[in-house]
Structures are given as structure tokens and as C-alpha cells.
Write a protein that binds this DNA or RNA. Structure first.
Lengths: 214, 214
DNA sequence: ACATTGTATTTTGTATACAAAATACAATGT
DNA sequence: ACATTGTATTTTGTATACAAAATACAATGT
């Protein structure tokens, strides 16, 4: 694996693990929204210098997790309800298009991979929530990746991050969403691009609306 | 302006002008696709050190203009036809959604701003190509910005860059696209979200298909 | 002639030094 | 008591030094 390779060679770029660690710290709340990142302090904490830390911070800035105010410093971004909703709207556009593209591709292997995400849950009476959350994440990532459209994946990645940060992995119960997932898959299987896009969008829209009403 | 401010204070972040200069060099071919960026060489050329250059390069990497191979260096990315088409597909998804959102907003001021882009060309017999190219760029940017959806703007920015890099500012003649632009605006004005999205998508799709057939 | 090894040179990744800007806070004035 | 000014401290932005990796290329062997 990539990471192992980095460990093997002594003088590899240390920015990647810093980046991952910082992301983790933002996700689990060790670094709070709005908090200022004092570079030397964090660098000392992680046992590195400011140079690779800066690299990691710039990567995080590009993912919208960190905000830079020139000459003032880097701050952990804070997200209000409006921004979360806006991200869901982006996902509607991107995942909708992805479903459309997949429907047009008519590739059996694609259908199989999508079905495989949720087949373990089809005949189980009690759905394991952790497993389903994981499957849900894989499904939505696959939807994008399987299009083979690299730029689409790149712009989706940004939104995906946010969803994880905000921390509502599952907004609605599996009983409700499992069926929606299969509606999307079946439309793709049939090659019905309009329906595939429509279902993919509605699926996200429902979660967004529920989030909004809270 | 922001830039002027940077010139006024002595010790401001020098990364921004480096970033802009490098982007310019990529756009106008001073730096060629696939070319390696030898950091010290470019830093000397621009009269700065490697530290702010690296910042600029990381920003460009996030815009997909530059590619980093760890321990090997930074390279100017090269784009094949597939990737250009993929970017157009992204634009279809994003601009389509933007048109939909604007149609739902029913804001007179929005309609006015969109109309203003092309009103100078309405009664002119001979359309100035440079002015129209500029107006076209403004219109497509406005379409996104006016939604007030910051994440949407952010992910669009990435695709927009590319279009400029690739350098086909205008793929089709104004006589053909002017009408399409107004079809989009009128659908937004009517509040017909479906039509607005549809027209916005078709507009981009036509350019994409023309590009593909070449 | 071509492949392989070993050495010199170049280039990257990281740490660090230093100047300028930002910030904290005490001293002073009203 | 509160605002304002001035000074000390902190922090950022940039340049630079240095080690390790990558690369170029000559020397050697087949």
C-alpha cells in the first residue's frame, strides 16, 4: 500500500500523515470549529516543523475544512445550516448526473458492484446499523467512481468530506433508504437515464429536507 | 482592490501573485503540458524562494493544473479529449442545477443581471467577438454565483479553470448561442425550473458534442 | 554494442532563522 | 471608569541550510 511504502523509505513526505491526523482531529472535535491553528503549537504537538504542516493545512483549506486569513492565520471552518444544505444540493447535482451516466453505460459489472453493496441486507430481518452506514458510504462513492469521470469524482470528494464532518452518517432508517437505493440501481440496470437521475436526486433531497426540518 | 492592498503593505503574502503568474504561464503556453517544474529554477525566474512558490503550486495542484509526484516533482498536467469532455459533463450538472435554483428563487434582480450580460448584443448587426466571449464568461460565472450556493461555486471554479486553459473560449458562433442564453434566462424568469435546467444543460451539451466531433 | 554498476550532481522534503505584521497588555490621558 | 497610545511578545511569511532521494552519466563488464 501507499502508506506502507512511505513508512519503508525513510525520508518520505510527512505531509500526508499530518493531513490525515489533522482531518481526524477536526472530525472528532479535538480541533473545534472556529478555532485558530497556531502553527508552531500544532507542529510541536505532532513533532514536525511548520513546513510540512503548512502543506497539510493548504490541502485542508482546499477541502473547505480550514480557512486562511492572510497574515492572521488558519482557522477551523465552521458550517452553518445553510452551508450544509448547499452541500446537499451539490450532491444532488453530482450524484444525479452520475446515475444518469451509469444508466447510459449499460455495464453489467457496474450493476453487480452496486447491487453487492446492499445485497447482504436484503433478507436480514434486523439490519446492522454500522454495516449499513458503511455500505451507504461505499454505494454513494461507487456511484461516482464507476462513471470513470475523474473530475466529477474530484468535485464530489469535497462535498463528501463535509457530510462526514458534520457527522450525520445516516439521516433516515435503512428500512426507508434500502428501497430507494434499489430503485436507483434498477433504473440504471434498465438504462433509464432520466429515472436513474430522478431517483438519485430524490434520495438525497429527502435527507436534505429532513435535515432542514429538524 | 485586494491586489493593490498587497502591494501597499510591504510584507504581504507573495504566494498570490506567484500563483497568478504561474497560471498565466500555463494558460499562454510558457509552461507546457507535461513539463516538469524545477522549483529552484522557477523560483529564481520569479525572484522568490521555494517556500511561497510551493504554496502557489499546491493551490494549482488543487485546481488540477499541476500534478505532484512525491519525491519526483511537480508537473504541468496534460489533458486528453476524454478529460475535457468529462469536465463539460460536470459543467452540465452544475450549471443545470444553478439554473434550476435561480428559477426557483424568482428574484427580479437576478434576471436583470443575467439579461445585462447580453443586452448590448441584442440589436447590433455585427457582434464583437472579444466582447461576446467576455460576456459569455461573465454569464456562466454569474449563473453560479447568483445562486448564493458557495460550495457550488467552489466546485464549478475548478471546471471553469480548465475550460480557459484548454482555450476554446467560444466553440460556437454568437448567432447560435445568443438565443440559447436568452432561452435560459426566460425560463428562469418564468420560474420554470425544469425548463431552465434543461436549456442550461443542452447549451453546454451542444458545445461538448461539437468538440467531440472535431 | 549493450547492459549494469558506481559515483557526482541535481532536486526534493524538512527544519530553522529572521524580519515584519499582529496581538496582548501595561501605561497614560481624559 | 473608559479610551488611547506605546511597548513587549507572539505569530506569520519568506529565505535558506542541510540531509536524503532522484537523476545523470561515466566506468566497467559481458
Amino acid at each position: 500500500m501507499y502508506t506502507k511504502y512511505n513508512v519503508m523509505i525513510q525520508h518520505a513526505n510527512i505531509s500526508e500523515p499530518i493531513y490525515l491526523r489533522l482531518k481526524e482531529m477536526i472530525l472528532n472535535g479535538e480541533l473545534k470549529q472556529g478555532e485558530k491553528i497556531v502553527q508552531e503549537k500544532i507542529a510541536d504537538m505532532l513533532g514536525v516543523s511548520r513546513t510540512p504542516l503548512m502543506k497539510a493545512l493548504l490541502a485542508l483549506e482546499n477541502e473547505y475544512l480550514v480557512e486562511s486569513i492572510p497574515r492572521r492565520g488558519m482557522y477551523i471552518r465552521s458550517w452553518d445550516k445553510k452551508e450544509i444544505i448547499d452541500i446537499y444540493i451539490c450532491r444532488e447535482a453530482i450524484e444525479g448526473m452520475a446515475a444518469r451516466l451509469l444508466a447510459q453505460s449499460k455495464d453489467e459489472n457496474i450493476i453487480k458492484q452496486l447491487r453487492d453493496c446492499f445485497s447482504p441486507f436484503l433478507n436480514s430481518k434486523e439490519i446492522n446499523l454500522d454495516a449499513y452506514t458503511e455500505a451507504d458510504e461505499v454505494f454513494h462513492s461507487l456511484l461516482i467512481k464507476l462513471t470513470g469521470n475523474a473530475p466529477l469524482d474530484k468535485i464530489y470528494f469535497f462535498g463528501n468530506i463535509h457530510e462526514k464532518v458534520i457527522g450525520h452518517g445516516l439521516i433516515r432508517p435503512p428500512e426507508e433508504t434500502l428501497n430507494e437505493h434499489f430503485k436507483i440501481i434498477k433504473a440504471i440496470e434498465k438504462g433509464d437515464a432520466d429515472a436513474a437521475e430522478q431517483f438519485a436526486r430524490e434520495h438525497i433531497k429527502k435527507s436534505r429536507e429532513l435535515l432542514f426540518d429538524q
